[in-house]
Amino acid sequence: MFGFVLRRVLQMVPMLIAIALLIFVLFSLIPGSFATGQQDEGLGLDMAVVARMRAELGLDDPLYVRFGRYVQQLATLDLGISFRSKQPVIEMISARLWPSLSLTAAAMGFAISVGLPLGFVAALRPGSVADLSLMVIAVSGLSLPVFWLGILLMYLFALTLGWFPSFGYGDGGLWHLALPAMALGVSPMALLARTTRAAVLDIMNADFVRTARSKGMNEFRVVVWHVLRNALVLVLTTIGLQFGSLLGQGVVVEKLFAWPGVGSLLVDSVFQRDIPAVQGCILMITLFFLVINTSVDIAYKLIDPRIRYT
């Protein structure tokens, strides 16, 4: 097991390096620069100031010099200094990490706690009214744009019912977390419901389930012991993939609800061409995705020891 974990962790390194290089090349080629983006409406730019900014930030250096500096920084786990705030990027991301993780975890918690039971109940009564209704909900959840859903949730739960604040981080507690987590969690919830239904239906018709029933095992034990456990492998894949990508998908929700996560930092940094911050955010999101995927692989082995990786 230790060898497996070590191998998976080491596999992440070349992936991260490749992503880091890709980001560097992309942001070196796209038009627009931080220096010229500092005055959005105005009397035109002060070119002397722009020139000093470019020199200060090293933007006039040849590409290979900037690339060398970037690699050197990465090698020492230094993500650089933000053009915009003049703070170390690692500090900026650290401040945003907990809000992002808490939002992602809450959204996933919502998705699992609602999506799994929905999918399971639908699979136990295939073709029934309950199954059809639940799947309509699931498909709707997948189809709704997050932005629009967020506005609807604000309108219903904040403006009409007055249960939750419509925006903001507050002290980071559940009171403020509820609406953004629901908005972000609806899509993975729907996907999980559909995946669970499909997985459970598939296993319910498997030979070993039929054998268990024919041996006289009661239905509850069949479902919990055989069906649920086997369905979990497929469901876990979906959970892992969704969990990993939610950090990146949170961009819209974070902006809409004024939630101070990594996603909103990334968007603001892209618009202002704060390249070190953009690079740092993308690396962090990639790392998160890779860690979650590796964790899921490890979890497979724990759930089903027969699984072997080559």
Partner: peptide, 18 residues
């Protein structure tokens, strides 16, 4: 100063007296 980039979110917050 809450940072609220979206006009529709500001609208709801204003109507909600937040």
């Amino acid at each position: 100063f809450p940072i609220m980039a979206e006009a529709s979110a500001r609208d709801i917050a204003f109507r909600n007296k937040e």
